[in-house]
């Protein structure tokens, strides 16, 4: 049985429950463990990169929408200084988003070399 982010079994999310206001956004949100399970499936099917993506996603599943949008914006070309990207990576580490933090640090190093920092 698949559980939503809230822990609620997805089967219990019915139209009636929605109408009665008994369904929260977290009842329709994917659980990080589900993403980890999908990562295992992707690995088994010859795509470790897809698996790595799902594992980064599992970390992001914990963040609110605004934070996800904010990190995306900071990674676009010439939006951030190298120091800001370092801070961002640290912030991500603080929220157990270690894989995403590593991605941001890697970006920082390449951006600095390729003139993509602010």
């Amino acid at each position: 049985m698949t559980r939503a982010y809230s822990g609620r079994p997805v089967e219990s999310v019915t139209v009636d429950a929605v109408r009665r206001g008994e369904v929260t956004r977290d009842d329709l949100r994917i659980h990080p463990e589900t993403l980890e399970a999908q990562a295992v499936v992707a690995e088994r099917h010859g795509n470790p990169q897809l698996a790595a993506n799902f594992r980064r996603a599992a970390e992001l599943a914990l963040l609110p929408d605004e934070d996800v949008m904010r990190v995306y914006e900071a990674l676009r070309p010439r939006r951030s200084t190298a120091a800001e990207l370092s801070d961002l990576a640290e912030w991500l580490d603080g929220r157990s988003c270690h894989r995403n933090a590593a991605l941001v640090r890697e970006a920082r190093d390449v951006y600095a070399r390729r003139d993509l920092t602010r």
């Binding site: 993506n53 996603a57 970390e59 996800v68 995306y72 070309p77 991605l103 951006y111």
Partner: peptide, 26 residues
């Protein structure tokens, strides 16, 4: 090419992050 890519206002890292962002919401 890197030039056209960044003219499109993204980098491989921002796009990779975006890819994970979508997956993070299923």
């Amino acid at each position: 090419t890197e030039q056209v890519f960044t003219d499109g206002d993204d980098t491989p890292w921002s796009k990779a992050f975006l890819t994970s962002a979508y997956a993070s919401r299923g």
